[in-house]
Each structure stands twice: as structure tokens, then as C-alpha cells.
Amino acid sequence: MLLSNLEIVPGRRVKDHLGLVQGSTVRAKHVGRDIAASFKNVFGGELRGYTELLNDSRQEAIKRMAEQAEAIGANAVLNIRFSTSSLTQGAAELFVYGSAVILED
């Protein structure tokens, strides 16, 4: 599965456009991470635990989007966009969407 946030793939032609595919996941962080984060909040700096958690979640969202694309017979997703929203206190939605296409050869 070729993933790209460009509208084209250099050197290749798009044969068919199959429409929107999306992947999303909602994740909550556990209390321990919040406690560590509240300490960090005094000193400042990166919250590594959160960074990793959000990265993992985003990978899962991408995987789900790719799954959708594969199910409808696409071999690439173009013009991918990400979106993150803080759903409630302590939970976030990671959302990714793009245009599923079939590339020639």
C-alpha cells in the first residue's frame, strides 16, 4: 500500500479513484502517565509517554485506513490528512483520511 499526502505519485498514473477512506482511534491515557505528566508540568519539557502513546495510536489509525483501502481494492491512498482532537478530559481521537486510488502497473 502506497501512502502519500501528495495529490499525485511522481512518474505513475492514477487509473481509478475509489473515494474517501479513513481510519480513526480514540485512546485514553492511564492515570500513571497523568501523574508523571503532572510532575513534568512543574519542570516543563517533553512528555515522552504521551508522545509515544499518540504515535502508536496514529499508526493504528493509519493501519485502519489502509485496511479500508485494501478492502475496496485500492493500491494507494493519496492526499492523506491527519486530525487530532481532544475528545474529553484525558482522551484523544486520532483521525486520518485520504483518497483511495488504483495506480497503473
Partner: peptide, 28 residues
């Protein structure tokens, strides 16, 4: 939006990087 046209078309791949950063007490 568009990559430069070139004679030998390159491979493409989605890349990303992220960071969660917190404010310190003083700044807050």
C-alpha cells in the same frame, strides 16, 4: 503541493514526526 518534475521519478513515502510538550509552572 507538487514535487518537482524530474526525469527519473522518485519513490514516495509518508513520513511524520510528533512531540508532546508541556508548559512549566512558571510559564503557566
Amino acid at each position: 503541493r507538487l514535487p518537482p518534475p524530474s526525469l527519473s521519478p522518485p519513490e514516495t513515502a509518508l513520513v511524520m514526526g510528533s512531540v508532546v510538550i508541556s508548559v512549566d509552572y512558571f510559564k503557566r
